[in-house]
Design a protein around this nucleic acid. Sequence first.
RNA 1: CGGGAUGUAGCGCAGUCUGGGAGCGCACUUGAAUGGGGUUCAAGGGGUCGGAGGUUCAAAUCCUCUCAUCCCGACCA
Length: 574
Amino acid sequence: MRLRKAYIPTLKEAPADAEVISHKLLVRAGFLRKLTSGVYIYLPLAWRSLNKIANIVREEMDRAGAQELHMPMVQPSDLWQESGRWDFYGKELLRFKDRHDRDCCLGPTHEEVITDLIRGEVRSYRQLPLNLYQIQTKFRDEIRPRFGLLRGREFIMKDAYSFDCDDEGADVSYRSMYDAYWRIFSRLGLRFRAVEADSGSIGGSFSHEFMVLAETGEDMIVSCTSCSFAANVERAPVVWRGESCRQQCPPVELTATPGAHSVAQVCDFLGVQPQQLIKTVIFAVDGNPVAVLVRGDREVNPVKLKNLLNAGELAIAAPEQVREWTGAPVGFAGPQGLHAVMHVYADLELRGGTDWIAGANRGDMHVLHLNLTRDATVTAFADLRVIGAADPCPLCGAEIETARGIEVGHVFKLGTKYSKALNAVILDEQGRERHIIMGCYGIGVSRVLAACIEQNNDADGIIFPPPIAPYDVALLNLDTQNADLCAKAEELYAILQTQGLDVLLDDREERPGIKFKDADLIGLPVQLVLGGRGFGRGMIEAKDRRSGEKAELPLEGFAAAFATWREHVLQGWK
RNA sequence: CGGGAUGUAGCGCAGUCUGGGAGCGCACUUGAAUGGGGUUCAAGGGGUCGGAGGUUCAAAUCCUCUCAUCCCGACCA
């Protein structure tokens, strides 16, 4: 592509609404323009990169035995009613009516459609296993879209669905996708981790997330410094080391704590440490009150609570609800007497202590010397808190470390959730009817592009990993007034293309500085600089965008010299 | 949905408090010089000041409504 003809609108300044680096650079480098909140136009450069990503995904999915198809984006409500998700999915599902007043939605995911397809066609175990996938635009009406392509409302996703007749087969399918994902993200040149994850609203029994490591990631992940354990903090179990409880504890005593409704305020007021407190958090679980107790310096993990209670909707109770249920304003709830109005769940860790300080269920009052077993009734003890950096690895007990990640892939073992809801059955070898065992597997293709840039950039712009760069080589003709130089540029342009490379030739009548800046901003892995200086000596400059390393290559025998140099650059990425 | 803010040329912004010429930088067009890291000079083109209504002799500016966008929060008591 000749830059003179290309639509690559680069900008000196980033738009004011861009916050994260990938968003700023994608806009500045001429990849992306916003249409409306969370909805973007992919310009030619972005589209080339996205296609390269998609093709790598395709190759590995095909290699894993999956078959590509393409499903509709507009879906009827009936299927969603049938699966139960029409009511359950929430406002992220964009709903509308067609001219006949029929309820429709834009597909945020395709379990319903694919299951409907399969139940109508597949009758025998002989037709399984099957794995079908598509690469398609999805729409999720996110509560707050932000960070450009990292959390858009409209985005490109690869979604795959596997169908097996038994659990063993489903496990094989799952493993095969897990391995394919590993290959995909490795080939894309990303630094990533695969972690155990919660299965969320998609449902199902087991899942892994593939996380690109980046400071701007919205997810926290933990991993063991010694063994293979790695998980999203949402899911990471906390082991209770079972320290014995101190038996001595004076009688409960009321104490005034005016205005102290946070752990920090209570600690300041009483001159105590957060570890001596019990934090009582009131949740509304499907409309009913539930209390969760954790140590004052810990955080409740709502995902664990949701799973423990097998709950649908779960939220922190509103202030009015807290007042109604506990009789006290927010900040003064405590375990005493709560069991009369709600279930009380306590984190395992609270078993290991006594003589607690807790809310008194009265405004501006706390209690001292609380002994949970003596002074309150706990429905159950369970692992309910968020893992912390000081906690040991739940598998081997070694030290753990935390990191931020961007979720770019997710594999789920769904089990029979959708095949039961939509009655997708087959006949097994014995002629018995069985529900199909399903799995689903997603990759955020457009998010991969942004995540990759979050991970690979510097002050000058993007640094593209070679596999997903929109072009392989930037060829800069520094002086378009010089006919000899232009002829040489064209010659090199042709040579590179015969080597199978995608080349972006800067043939604009611009000053060299502009060409250098734009080349760095767009971030193609290799730059070739053809200018008067080197040309006079029969040389051309090559620059590795990642390392900044430069070399002079001879124009005589250029093809071979360049191939060697480029190989050297590619090695740097390994 | 709660809180905060912003909408003025393609992009970044000033002007709004205190009403009276619609401006600056970049980008764009033309010309000249320059020619290896966003060069310089000159001359230009481009805006219903987000929209509607109101107050006023007069509104980007004041008032009301509305639309849009962004930030923070919407789990930690």
